[in-house]
Amino acid sequence: MSLSRPPLGERSTLLQMNHVEKTFRGNIVALKDMNLTVNEGDFISLLGPSGCGKSTALRIISGLMQPTAGQIRWTGGQSKDDLGVVFQEPTLMPWARVVDNVWLPFRLRGISYNEVKDEVLQALKLVGLEKFQRAFPRELSGGMKMRVAIARAMVTKPRLILMDEPFAALDEITRHKLNQDLLALREAIGCTVIFVTHSVFESVFLSDRIVVMAARPGRVIRQLEVDAAYPRTEEFRTSAEYAAHCREASDALHQAIGEAA
């Protein structure tokens, strides 16, 4: 079920953030006037230094946090089935086997395992862990745990997957591999992703749009398009095109850090 994504300018809107602000304890501005349009099929990276409000933006989109001002508008309204999430930690239930961890989003909707067995096993197969379905999380490596978390996020085929620095704690080799696999997954299931990262290289490799943010107060300072074609392979990492985009994103990031300092 491969999905042909329309080009960037012709995608239908999934959600819009309008003048979203978040203030803590009355005077700490975590997020200032954020406007963002997320389209169906987008892979958007939120790139910025720590304290720039990336995670706050993600929490507001996920509904865990209410904005102080502004609003988020989902096309066709929002239901709790719309989201999948991957955190920086794999965040698996240590007492549950891999299959049961992936089944969780369905289970919380009151759907029995037998009804969704195929979906759960399919998701595990997509992340390459079908052989480990009976394992407990402690038996898996860090990268494998993260794959389970990704399988859990996409098993319900949500309209939007939020990823909060999911690969930050992994080693470089595992990280590259997971970057690749994530893109392959996206081709396979056609999901929309918002990906928080502080790595320029990762954001360029993965996304078709990069939202560069600055800190104090947290805000969007630039939006870049990475128009390189998918599927992107390891060769893309060494291409001139990749280097040019990295330079552009890197400059924007330096500007973000410079403005904050």
Binding site: F87, E89, L108
Partner: peptide, 23 residues
């Protein structure tokens, strides 16, 4: 993070108790 995850998936109080807090 697991608590957040349960909230995002719209878990009820009972579900949180049964599947998260109790284990």
């Amino acid at each position: 993070n697991l608590e957040d995850l349960f909230s995002i998936y719209g878990a009820t109080r009972w579900q949180k108790l049964r599947y998260l807090y109790a284990p």
